[in-house]
Design a protein around this nucleic acid. Structure first.
Length: 238
RNA sequence: CCGGAAGCUCGUCGC
């Protein structure tokens, strides 16, 4: 089972779902029992592939087979339900952790914040953030990035700025993704001059900017009808 | 703290 779990992981990260399926069949044929590593790998893989029904099916199976869930498997479920915007299910899994005697860790909270961010549930994000600080789980770059993303999604650019400053104050690393999220948020709010700021900061830090960054810039200029600026960004993609 | 490492966490658009 250890071997097959590894194979599934590799197939999953390579997005080779055909092979993954074959490994699953073979694994069943041999009557191997899935363990928590297998389940977390499967759930994560199905989630990335957008196969929500398979996520639910696998999660259900994990509960039925009586495999002892661990924090990683629970985290994988939380992430998967968050991505699928099944917020009630996500919260349910989170609540079940206590019953299993599993303590949420930093990744658990980041996954929760990520789900709320995708759903635009900003007050719930803030609640998680406060719970982290209180529970001595330090919010990190990913936590902050998710929060800024959620604020941007609902057009609260001023609150994006607050979180950004908080990162600076707490010396949380500001990375390429942080700045890309800021660009996207300003762009969606049509705050074009503000949008240039994180982009410039990127250049100053030598981070360059990747395809996602440039796509966000192009979309921002596009919303304002700034065709010339769009084309300039497009050229940088080469 | 450093190094090794891969089951889970963050960004645009599309499917």
């Amino acid at each position: 089972i250890f071997h097959f779990t590894k194979l599934l992981q590799v197939a999953g990260q390579a997005e080779d779902y055909h092979s993954a399926e074959k490994f699953m069949l073979e694994l069943h044929r041999r009557g191997l029992k899935l363990n928590s590593h297998t389940f977390s790998s499967l759930i994560s893989m199905y989630s990335r592939a957008g196969m929500v029904d398979k996520v639910v099916e696998t999660h259900t199976k994990m509960k039925e087979t009586g495999v002892k869930p661990d924090v990683v498997a629970m985290n994988a479920c939380i992430t998967a339900y968050g991505r699928a915007l099944m917020i009630c299910k996500m919260e349910q899994v989170f609540a079940e952790m206590h019953g299993h005697g599993i303590d949420p860790n930093q990744i658990t909270m980041n996954a929760m914040v990520g789900g709320y961010a995708k759903a635009g549930m900003t007050s719930e994000m803030a609640r998680c953030y406060r719970a982290m600080v209180k529970g001595k789980l330090r919010p990190d770059t990913m936590t902050s990035n998710a929060i800024i993303s959620g604020k941007g999604k609902v057009g609260k650019t001023f609150e994006m700025d607050i979180m950004f400053r908080k990162m600076q104050d707490r010396t949380v690393d500001i990375n390429l993704i942080t700045l890309s999220i800021m660009i996207d948020g300003y762009g969606k709010a049509k705050k074009i001059s503000e949008m240039g700021r994180p982009y410039n900061e990127m250049q100053e830090k030598g981070l360059g900017g990747d395809l996602v960054t440039l796509s966000s810039m192009i979309a921002g200029y596009g919303r304002n009808g700034m065709i010339g600026e769009m084309e300039k960004m497009f050229m940088k993609m080469t």
